[in-house]
Design a protein around this nucleic acid. Structure first.
Lengths: 212, 212
DNA sequence: TTTTGGTTCAAACGTATGTTTCATACGAAC
DNA sequence: GTTCGTATGAAACATACGTTTGAACCAAAA
C-alpha cells in the first residue's frame, strides 16, 4: 500500500515544482507544504532527484497510456491512411486535459507548467525522466504521421512534427498567457476548447505545400 | 565606457545561464568562468538578479529593434494588407539568428536556450525582463497580423498568434532536438533553413478555415 | 508482554549560496 | 608627489541547501 506521507509529498512537490522550477524548489519547502518531516523525502524516495523523477512519472505514465490507446483506435479505423486530425487529437488531448485541470481544489496550478519544466530545465534528472517516459510514445506517433502523410519528405515531416510539439507545449500554459495578452477577454478553461483552436491550425500546417 | 570586466561577466553569465538555468547558476561559477573576482558582480551590477536582467536586456534589445525595423518595411510595402509571410519573417528571423549563432568560438552554446529560460523560468526576474523587453513589440505584431487577416475572428487570431509563438520558441532549440529525434540525419545550422520550414507551416495554420 | 519492523522526528552534518567588508592597487588630476 | 575616485582582491558574513544520524514512536507479531 502507498503510504499517505508519500502521496502528500508528491502532491506538494508537484505544485511547488510547477510554480518555482526544479532547482528553485527546496526540500524544506516541499516537506513544509506537505506537513511532513524534512527527512521523509530521503526516507521514502532516496533523494531529491528521485522525488522529481517520481513526480513526473506519476503524471506522464497515465497520459502516455491514454495517448497510445487513442492512437490505436485511430489506426484501427483507417490502417492504411490514418486521419491526421485523429493522430493529433490522440497526442494532444490527454496531456492538455491534465494541463487544464487544476491540481487540487485549493491550488489552481496548471499541470502544464510542470510539463514545461520537464521540457526546458537542463538538469539530467529531467532528461532521464523525459527519455524514459516519452521516447517510445513519440516514435509511434511519428510513424503514424508518416503513414498519414506519405508524400511528405522525411526531413519536412520531422520539422513539422517539431512545430506541432512546440504548439502543444506552448498551449499547455496558454491560459495565463492568453488571458494577459487579450486583456482578460479570452478565458479558456477546458482542453476541448484549446483543441478546437489548435487542431485546424496544426492540420493546415502539416498538409501545406512545403515550397510556397 | 563599458568596463571590460563587465562584458566578461555578461559573456560568461550568458553561457552558464543558458546551459544550467537561472537558479542553478551560481555567482561563483560565473566569476570563475569570467576570470573575475567574486565581488565584481555585486560591484558592477548590484545583485545576481540585476545581472540576469542585464544579460537578457543586452540580447533582446537589438533583436526587437531589428524586428520592428523589418516590420516597418513590410507595412510600408503593403500598408492596407501587409503580407503574412513578411510579418512572420520579421518576427522570427532576428531572434532565430541569435538562437542559431554560437555565443563564441570556443563554446557552441545556442542562445535559443537562454531565451527558453526567459520564457519558462518562473522567477520574477524573468517576468520583469520579458515584460520590459517584449510587451510593446508583441502588440505591434499582433495588430499587423490583424490587418493582414481582417476576416479572422479576434479570439481566433489570439489563439493562432499564440501557436506561432509556440512554434518559434520551440524552434529556438530545434537543433539538438531534431538531431536526436532524426538520429543525426537532420542538422540545421542556420536560421534561414529553419525559417524555410517554419514559415509555410505557420502561414497555412494562420489562414486555415477555423471550422473544419 | 516483549519484540520487531517500519515510520516519524528534532537535530546536526558538511557544503554552497548571495552578499558585505575592508584593505589594497591603479591612474588621472591637482 | 600627493590626493582622490574607481576598481580589484581575499576573506568573512549570515543564511540556505541536501543529506545523515540516532532516538522516539507505534501498531502488529511472537
Amino acid at each position: 500500500m502507498q503510504s499517505e506521507t508519500k502521496t502528500r509529498i508528491l502532491d506538494a512537490a508537484e505544485i511547488l515544482l510547477a510554480q518555482n522550477g526544479l532547482s528553485a524548489t527546496s526540500m524544506r519547502a516541499i516537506t513544509e507544504a506537505a506537513n511532513v518531516n524534512l527527512a521523509a523525502i530521503n526516507y521514502h524516495f532516496g533523494s531529491k532527484e528521485a522525488l522529481i523523477h517520481a513526480v513526473f512519472a506519476r503524471r506522464l505514465a497515465p497520459v502516455n497510456e491514454r495517448r497510445l490507446a487513442m492512437l490505436d483506435q485511430v489506426l484501427k479505423a483507417n490502417p492504411k491512411r490514418p486521419k491526421i486530425r485523429g493522430i493529433l487529437r490522440a497526442f494532444a488531448l490527454p496531456i492538455l486535459e491534465t494541463a487544464f485541470q487544476p491540481t487540487n481544489e485549493k491550488c489552481p496550478v496548471q499541470l502544464g507548467a510542470l510539463m514545461i519544466r520537464l521540457y526546458t530545465e537542463p538538469a539530467q534528472v529531467v532528461e532521464r525522466s523525459f527519455n524514459e517516459q516519452m521516447a517510445s510514445t513519440a516514435r509511434r506517433f511519428v510513424s503514424a504521421l508518416h503513414a498519414a502523410l506519405p508524400k511528405l519528405d522525411n526531413e519536412v515531416l520531422y520539422w513539422r512534427t517539431h512545430f506541432c510539439v512546440g504548439c502543444l507545449v506552448h498551449t499547455m500554459h496558454a491560459r495565463p498567457i492568453l488571458l494577459a495578452v487579450s486583456n482578460g477577454t479570452i478565458q479558456c478553461d477546458n482542453a476541448e476548447e484549446a483543441l478546437e483552436q489548435m487542431l485546424p491550425f496544426l492540420e493546415a500546417g502539416l498538409t501545406s505545400a512545403s515550397n510556397s
